[in-house]
Nucleic acid binder design. Sequence first.
DNA 1: CCGGCATTGTTGCGTGACATAACGATCGCT
DNA 2: AGCGATCGTTATGTCACGCAACAATGCCGG
Lengths: 157, 157
Amino acid sequence: MQDAEVEPGRHDALGVLDGLVGYHLRRASSVFASDFGRAVGGDGLRQVPFAILSVIAASPGIRQGAAGEALGIKRANMVVLINELVEAGHVDRRAAEDDRRAIALVLTPKGRTTLENATARLTEHEDELLADFTAGERDMLIGLIRRIEAREQPPAD
Amino acid sequence: MQDAEVEPGRHDALGVLDGLVGYHLRRASSVFASDFGRAVGGDGLRQVPFAILSVIAASPGIRQGAAGEALGIKRANMVVLINELVEAGHVDRRAAEDDRRAIALVLTPKGRTTLENATARLTEHEDELLADFTAGERDMLIGLIRRIEAREQPPAD
DNA sequence: CCGGCATTGTTGCGTGACATAACGATCGCT
DNA sequence: AGCGATCGTTATGTCACGCAACAATGCCGG
Protein backbone atom coordinates (compact mmCIF):
# COMPACT_ATOMS: atom_id res chain seq x y z
CA MET A 1 0.00 0.00 0.00
CA GLN A 2 1.24 3.41 -0.93
CA ASP A 3 0.53 6.80 0.54
CA ALA A 4 -3.04 7.81 -0.25
CA GLU A 5 -2.03 11.19 -1.67
CA VAL A 6 0.47 9.92 -4.21
CA GLU A 7 -1.50 10.23 -7.44
CA PRO A 8 -4.48 12.55 -7.33
CA GLY A 9 -4.16 13.07 -11.07
CA ARG A 10 -6.00 10.26 -12.74
CA HIS A 11 -9.65 10.75 -11.86
CA ASP A 12 -9.06 13.93 -9.89
CA ALA A 13 -9.43 14.65 -6.21
CA LEU A 14 -13.05 15.62 -6.07
CA GLY A 15 -13.82 14.40 -2.59
CA VAL A 16 -17.40 13.52 -1.75
CA LEU A 17 -18.41 15.06 -5.06
CA ASP A 18 -17.18 12.01 -6.90
CA GLY A 19 -19.90 9.85 -5.39
CA LEU A 20 -22.77 12.13 -6.34
CA VAL A 21 -24.69 11.30 -9.49
CA GLY A 22 -25.83 14.89 -9.83
CA TYR A 23 -22.31 16.19 -10.21
CA HIS A 24 -21.34 13.72 -12.91
CA LEU A 25 -24.57 14.46 -14.73
CA ARG A 26 -23.70 18.12 -14.69
CA ARG A 27 -20.22 17.56 -16.09
CA ALA A 28 -21.34 15.13 -18.75
CA SER A 29 -24.08 17.48 -19.77
CA SER A 30 -21.55 20.25 -20.17
CA VAL A 31 -19.38 17.99 -22.34
CA PHE A 32 -22.32 17.51 -24.67
CA ALA A 33 -23.10 21.22 -24.55
CA SER A 34 -19.60 22.09 -25.74
CA ASP A 35 -19.86 19.45 -28.42
CA PHE A 36 -23.16 20.94 -29.49
CA GLY A 37 -21.37 24.21 -30.00
CA ARG A 38 -18.70 22.59 -32.13
CA ALA A 39 -21.32 20.75 -34.18
CA VAL A 40 -23.78 23.50 -35.03
CA GLY A 41 -22.78 26.51 -32.97
CA GLY A 42 -21.14 28.08 -35.99
CA ASP A 43 -24.60 28.63 -37.45
CA GLY A 44 -25.68 30.46 -34.32
CA LEU A 45 -28.06 27.67 -33.35
CA ARG A 46 -28.11 26.99 -29.63
CA GLN A 47 -29.37 24.03 -27.68
CA VAL A 48 -32.70 25.43 -26.55
CA PRO A 49 -33.76 26.92 -29.90
CA PHE A 50 -32.81 23.65 -31.57
CA ALA A 51 -34.95 21.76 -29.08
CA ILE A 52 -37.86 24.07 -29.84
CA LEU A 53 -37.52 23.47 -33.56
CA SER A 54 -37.59 19.75 -32.91
CA VAL A 55 -40.76 19.98 -30.83
CA ILE A 56 -42.54 22.14 -33.39
CA ALA A 57 -41.54 19.76 -36.17
CA ALA A 58 -42.97 16.88 -34.17
CA SER A 59 -46.25 18.71 -33.54
CA PRO A 60 -46.90 21.38 -36.15
CA GLY A 61 -49.28 24.05 -34.94
CA ILE A 62 -48.43 23.40 -31.30
CA ARG A 63 -49.21 26.24 -28.90
CA GLN A 64 -46.31 28.32 -27.67
CA GLY A 65 -47.05 27.39 -24.10
CA ALA A 66 -47.36 23.69 -24.84
CA ALA A 67 -44.05 23.68 -26.68
CA GLY A 68 -42.41 25.31 -23.71
CA GLU A 69 -44.00 22.88 -21.31
CA ALA A 70 -42.66 19.91 -23.24
CA LEU A 71 -39.17 21.29 -22.79
CA GLY A 72 -39.51 22.62 -19.27
CA ILE A 73 -39.32 26.24 -20.41
CA LYS A 74 -41.42 28.90 -18.72
CA ARG A 75 -43.85 30.86 -20.87
CA ALA A 76 -42.06 34.10 -20.10
CA ASN A 77 -38.83 32.77 -21.53
CA MET A 78 -40.50 31.26 -24.57
CA VAL A 79 -41.42 34.70 -25.85
CA VAL A 80 -37.84 35.78 -26.47
CA LEU A 81 -36.86 32.40 -27.88
CA ILE A 82 -39.73 32.32 -30.36
CA ASN A 83 -38.98 35.92 -31.29
CA GLU A 84 -35.47 34.85 -32.20
CA LEU A 85 -36.67 31.92 -34.27
CA VAL A 86 -39.24 34.05 -36.09
CA GLU A 87 -36.69 36.75 -36.87
CA ALA A 88 -34.30 34.07 -38.10
CA GLY A 89 -37.02 32.90 -40.45
CA HIS A 90 -37.22 29.42 -38.90
CA VAL A 91 -40.68 29.64 -37.38
CA ASP A 92 -43.99 31.27 -38.24
CA ARG A 93 -46.44 32.47 -35.64
CA ARG A 94 -50.00 31.75 -36.68
CA ALA A 95 -53.18 32.61 -34.85
CA ALA A 96 -54.68 29.59 -33.20
CA GLU A 97 -58.09 28.80 -34.69
CA ASP A 98 -60.01 28.06 -31.53
CA ASP A 99 -58.40 30.47 -29.09
CA ARG A 100 -57.61 34.05 -29.93
CA ARG A 101 -55.14 34.34 -27.06
CA ALA A 102 -53.03 31.45 -28.23
CA ILE A 103 -50.39 31.24 -30.92
CA ALA A 104 -49.81 28.22 -33.14
CA LEU A 105 -46.23 27.57 -34.16
CA VAL A 106 -45.13 26.06 -37.45
CA LEU A 107 -41.77 25.61 -39.12
CA THR A 108 -40.89 27.50 -42.26
CA PRO A 109 -39.15 25.53 -45.01
CA LYS A 110 -35.93 27.20 -43.89
CA GLY A 111 -36.61 26.10 -40.34
CA ARG A 112 -37.15 22.56 -41.50
CA THR A 113 -33.88 22.35 -43.41
CA THR A 114 -32.02 24.02 -40.54
CA LEU A 115 -33.41 21.39 -38.20
CA GLU A 116 -32.50 18.59 -40.57
CA ASN A 117 -28.96 19.79 -41.11
CA ALA A 118 -28.39 20.35 -37.42
CA THR A 119 -29.81 16.94 -36.57
CA ALA A 120 -27.52 15.26 -39.07
CA ARG A 121 -24.40 16.96 -37.77
CA LEU A 122 -25.54 16.45 -34.20
CA THR A 123 -26.07 12.70 -34.43
CA GLU A 124 -22.74 12.50 -36.18
CA HIS A 125 -21.06 14.25 -33.26
CA GLU A 126 -22.90 12.13 -30.72
CA ASP A 127 -21.72 8.98 -32.47
CA GLU A 128 -18.19 10.29 -32.19
CA LEU A 129 -18.55 11.21 -28.55
CA LEU A 130 -20.03 7.79 -27.76
CA ALA A 131 -17.69 5.91 -30.06
CA ASP A 132 -16.55 3.50 -27.38
CA PHE A 133 -20.10 2.71 -26.30
CA THR A 134 -21.78 -0.40 -27.58
CA ALA A 135 -25.33 -0.03 -28.84
CA GLY A 136 -26.48 -1.81 -25.72
CA GLU A 137 -24.60 0.56 -23.44
CA ARG A 138 -26.02 3.52 -25.26
CA ASP A 139 -29.58 2.26 -24.90
CA MET A 140 -28.88 1.45 -21.28
CA LEU A 141 -27.64 4.99 -20.72
CA ILE A 142 -30.66 6.63 -22.34
CA GLY A 143 -32.97 4.31 -20.45
CA LEU A 144 -31.44 5.13 -17.09
CA ILE A 145 -31.43 8.86 -17.77
CA ARG A 146 -35.06 8.82 -18.86
CA ARG A 147 -36.00 7.24 -15.58
CA ILE A 148 -34.36 10.16 -13.83
CA GLU A 149 -36.22 12.68 -15.97
CA ALA A 150 -39.44 10.96 -14.99
CA ARG A 151 -38.73 11.87 -11.36
CA GLU A 152 -38.91 15.56 -12.12
CA GLN A 153 -40.85 17.42 -9.47
CA PRO A 154 -43.18 20.37 -10.03
CA PRO A 155 -41.90 23.66 -8.56
CA ALA A 156 -44.08 23.36 -5.46
CA ASP A 157 -46.53 26.03 -6.71
CA MET B 1 -50.62 -1.07 -35.35
CA GLN B 2 -52.22 2.19 -34.42
CA ASP B 3 -51.75 5.65 -35.83
CA ALA B 4 -48.35 6.98 -34.80
CA GLU B 5 -49.71 10.31 -33.54
CA VAL B 6 -52.39 8.94 -31.25
CA GLU B 7 -50.84 9.49 -27.84
CA PRO B 8 -48.13 12.14 -27.73
CA GLY B 9 -48.73 12.57 -24.03
CA ARG B 10 -46.85 9.83 -22.29
CA HIS B 11 -43.21 10.45 -23.11
CA ASP B 12 -43.85 13.71 -24.91
CA ALA B 13 -43.58 14.65 -28.55
CA LEU B 14 -39.98 15.74 -28.66
CA GLY B 15 -39.20 14.69 -32.20
CA VAL B 16 -35.60 13.96 -33.07
CA LEU B 17 -34.62 15.38 -29.71
CA ASP B 18 -35.77 12.22 -28.00
CA GLY B 19 -32.99 10.19 -29.61
CA LEU B 20 -30.18 12.51 -28.57
CA VAL B 21 -28.24 11.61 -25.46
CA GLY B 22 -27.21 15.22 -24.96
CA TYR B 23 -30.78 16.39 -24.51
CA HIS B 24 -31.66 13.77 -21.92
CA LEU B 25 -28.45 14.51 -20.08
CA ARG B 26 -29.42 18.16 -19.94
CA ARG B 27 -32.87 17.44 -18.57
CA ALA B 28 -31.68 14.92 -16.03
CA SER B 29 -29.00 17.30 -14.90
CA SER B 30 -31.63 19.97 -14.38
CA VAL B 31 -33.72 17.57 -12.32
CA PHE B 32 -30.77 17.07 -10.01
CA ALA B 33 -30.09 20.79 -9.95
CA SER B 34 -33.62 21.51 -8.73
CA ASP B 35 -33.29 18.76 -6.18
CA PHE B 36 -30.03 20.29 -5.03
CA GLY B 37 -31.93 23.48 -4.39
CA ARG B 38 -34.53 21.68 -2.33
CA ALA B 39 -31.87 19.84 -0.36
CA VAL B 40 -29.49 22.61 0.62
CA GLY B 41 -30.59 25.68 -1.30
CA GLY B 42 -32.26 27.07 1.77
CA ASP B 43 -28.83 27.65 3.26
CA GLY B 44 -27.81 29.64 0.22
CA LEU B 45 -25.35 26.97 -0.86
CA ARG B 46 -25.27 26.47 -4.62
CA GLN B 47 -23.90 23.62 -6.70
CA VAL B 48 -20.63 25.20 -7.75
CA PRO B 49 -19.62 26.55 -4.34
CA PHE B 50 -20.47 23.18 -2.83
CA ALA B 51 -18.29 21.48 -5.38
CA ILE B 52 -15.44 23.82 -4.52
CA LEU B 53 -15.78 23.04 -0.82
CA SER B 54 -15.59 19.35 -1.65
CA VAL B 55 -12.43 19.76 -3.71
CA ILE B 56 -10.73 21.86 -1.04
CA ALA B 57 -11.64 19.33 1.62
CA ALA B 58 -10.15 16.58 -0.50
CA SER B 59 -6.90 18.54 -1.04
CA PRO B 60 -6.33 21.10 1.70
CA GLY B 61 -4.03 23.88 0.62
CA ILE B 62 -4.85 23.40 -3.06
CA ARG B 63 -4.17 26.36 -5.32
CA GLN B 64 -7.11 28.42 -6.45
CA GLY B 65 -6.34 27.68 -10.05
CA ALA B 66 -5.91 23.95 -9.49
CA ALA B 67 -9.23 23.75 -7.68
CA GLY B 68 -10.91 25.47 -10.57
CA GLU B 69 -9.24 23.20 -13.08
CA ALA B 70 -10.50 20.10 -11.29
CA LEU B 71 -14.03 21.41 -11.69
CA GLY B 72 -13.71 22.89 -15.15
CA ILE B 73 -14.03 26.45 -13.86
CA LYS B 74 -11.99 29.24 -15.42
CA ARG B 75 -9.67 31.16 -13.14
CA ALA B 76 -11.56 34.37 -13.76
CA ASN B 77 -14.74 32.84 -12.39
CA MET B 78 -13.01 31.28 -9.41
CA VAL B 79 -12.22 34.71 -7.98
CA VAL B 80 -15.84 35.64 -7.33
CA LEU B 81 -16.69 32.17 -6.08
CA ILE B 82 -13.82 32.07 -3.60
CA ASN B 83 -14.69 35.60 -2.51
CA GLU B 84 -18.17 34.39 -1.66
CA LEU B 85 -16.88 31.40 0.27
CA VAL B 86 -14.38 33.53 2.18
CA GLU B 87 -17.01 36.11 3.08
CA ALA B 88 -19.32 33.31 4.19
CA GLY B 89 -16.53 32.11 6.49
CA HIS B 90 -16.24 28.74 4.79
CA VAL B 91 -12.79 29.12 3.29
CA ASP B 92 -9.54 30.79 4.23
CA ARG B 93 -7.11 32.19 1.69
CA ARG B 94 -3.53 31.52 2.70
CA ALA B 95 -0.36 32.54 0.93
CA ALA B 96 1.21 29.63 -0.87
CA GLU B 97 4.63 28.84 0.58
CA ASP B 98 6.56 28.30 -2.61
CA ASP B 99 4.90 30.81 -4.93
CA ARG B 100 4.01 34.31 -3.88
CA ARG B 101 1.54 34.68 -6.75
CA ALA B 102 -0.48 31.68 -5.73
CA ILE B 103 -3.12 31.28 -3.06
CA ALA B 104 -3.61 28.16 -1.00
CA LEU B 105 -7.18 27.36 -0.01
CA VAL B 106 -8.24 25.66 3.21
CA LEU B 107 -11.58 25.04 4.84
CA THR B 108 -12.52 26.77 8.06
CA PRO B 109 -14.21 24.63 10.71
CA LYS B 110 -17.48 26.25 9.66
CA GLY B 111 -16.76 25.33 6.07
CA ARG B 112 -16.12 21.75 7.07
CA THR B 113 -19.39 21.38 8.95
CA THR B 114 -21.29 23.10 6.17
CA LEU B 115 -19.82 20.64 3.71
CA GLU B 116 -20.65 17.70 5.94
CA ASN B 117 -24.23 18.78 6.53
CA ALA B 118 -24.81 19.49 2.88
CA THR B 119 -23.28 16.17 1.88
CA ALA B 120 -25.53 14.31 4.27
CA ARG B 121 -28.70 15.98 3.07
CA LEU B 122 -27.54 15.65 -0.52
CA THR B 123 -26.90 11.92 -0.49
CA GLU B 124 -30.21 11.55 1.26
CA HIS B 125 -31.94 13.38 -1.58
CA GLU B 126 -30.05 11.43 -4.21
CA ASP B 127 -31.13 8.18 -2.63
CA GLU B 128 -34.71 9.39 -2.84
CA LEU B 129 -34.36 10.48 -6.44
CA LEU B 130 -32.79 7.16 -7.37
CA ALA B 131 -35.07 5.10 -5.18
CA ASP B 132 -36.16 2.78 -7.95
CA PHE B 133 -32.59 2.14 -9.08
CA THR B 134 -30.84 -0.98 -7.93
CA ALA B 135 -27.30 -0.58 -6.64
CA GLY B 136 -26.09 -2.18 -9.85
CA GLU B 137 -28.04 0.24 -12.02
CA ARG B 138 -26.69 3.14 -10.06
CA ASP B 139 -23.11 2.01 -10.48
CA MET B 140 -23.79 1.35 -14.12
CA LEU B 141 -25.13 4.89 -14.52
CA ILE B 142 -22.17 6.52 -12.82
CA GLY B 143 -19.79 4.37 -14.82
CA LEU B 144 -21.34 5.30 -18.14
CA ILE B 145 -21.46 8.99 -17.28
CA ARG B 146 -17.83 8.99 -16.18
CA ARG B 147 -16.83 7.60 -19.54
CA ILE B 148 -18.56 10.55 -21.16
CA GLU B 149 -16.77 13.01 -18.90
CA ALA B 150 -13.51 11.44 -19.97
CA ARG B 151 -14.24 12.49 -23.55
CA GLU B 152 -14.13 16.15 -22.62
CA GLN B 153 -12.24 18.16 -25.19
CA PRO B 154 -9.97 21.11 -24.48
CA PRO B 155 -11.29 24.46 -25.74
CA ALA B 156 -9.16 24.38 -28.89
CA ASP B 157 -6.75 27.08 -27.59
C1' DC C 1 22.17 39.20 -13.90
C1' DC C 2 18.72 40.58 -16.77
C1' DG C 3 15.16 40.70 -20.21
C1' DG C 4 11.50 38.06 -22.28
C1' DC C 5 7.85 34.89 -21.48
C1' DA C 6 4.66 32.00 -18.97
C1' DT C 7 1.72 31.69 -14.99
C1' DT C 8 -1.41 33.34 -10.96
C1' DG C 9 -4.90 35.84 -9.53
C1' DT C 10 -7.72 39.77 -10.65
C1' DT C 11 -11.09 43.06 -12.95
C1' DG C 12 -14.51 44.19 -16.32
C1' DC C 13 -17.74 42.99 -19.49
C1' DG C 14 -20.89 40.04 -22.28
C1' DT C 15 -24.16 36.05 -22.75
C1' DG C 16 -27.26 32.05 -22.26
C1' DA C 17 -30.56 29.91 -19.55
C1' DC C 18 -33.23 30.18 -16.44
C1' DA C 19 -36.86 32.43 -12.35
C1' DT C 20 -40.51 35.64 -10.53
C1' DA C 21 -43.92 39.22 -10.60
C1' DA C 22 -47.19 41.97 -12.80
C1' DC C 23 -50.19 43.05 -16.74
C1' DG C 24 -53.83 43.09 -20.84
C1' DA C 25 -56.49 40.15 -23.58
C1' DT C 26 -59.31 36.37 -23.90
C1' DC C 27 -61.78 32.26 -22.49
C1' DG C 28 -65.00 29.45 -19.58
C1' DC C 29 -68.21 28.97 -16.24
C1' DT C 30 -71.81 30.34 -13.24
C1' DA D 1 -72.84 40.08 -16.72
C1' DG D 2 -69.13 38.95 -13.90
C1' DC D 3 -65.15 36.48 -12.10
C1' DG D 4 -61.39 33.51 -12.12
C1' DA D 5 -58.25 30.88 -14.93
C1' DT D 6 -55.28 30.85 -18.98
C1' DC D 7 -52.13 32.79 -22.87
C1' DG D 8 -48.76 35.59 -24.28
C1' DT D 9 -46.02 39.49 -22.94
C1' DT D 10 -42.84 42.79 -20.42
C1' DA D 11 -39.54 43.88 -16.98
C1' DT D 12 -36.13 42.59 -13.91
C1' DG D 13 -32.91 39.56 -11.41
C1' DT D 14 -29.70 35.58 -10.79
C1' DC D 15 -26.34 32.02 -11.83
C1' DA D 16 -22.86 29.94 -14.42
C1' DC D 17 -20.25 30.45 -17.50
C1' DG D 18 -16.94 32.87 -21.59
C1' DC D 19 -13.24 36.24 -23.19
C1' DA D 20 -9.81 40.14 -22.99
C1' DA D 21 -6.67 42.82 -20.59
C1' DC D 22 -3.72 43.61 -16.56
C1' DA D 23 -0.16 43.60 -12.40
C1' DA D 24 2.69 40.75 -9.81
C1' DT D 25 5.53 37.09 -9.68
C1' DG D 26 8.17 33.04 -11.26
C1' DC D 27 11.21 30.81 -14.71
C1' DC D 28 14.78 30.48 -17.96
C1' DG D 29 18.15 31.43 -21.69
C1' DG D 30 21.65 34.39 -23.13
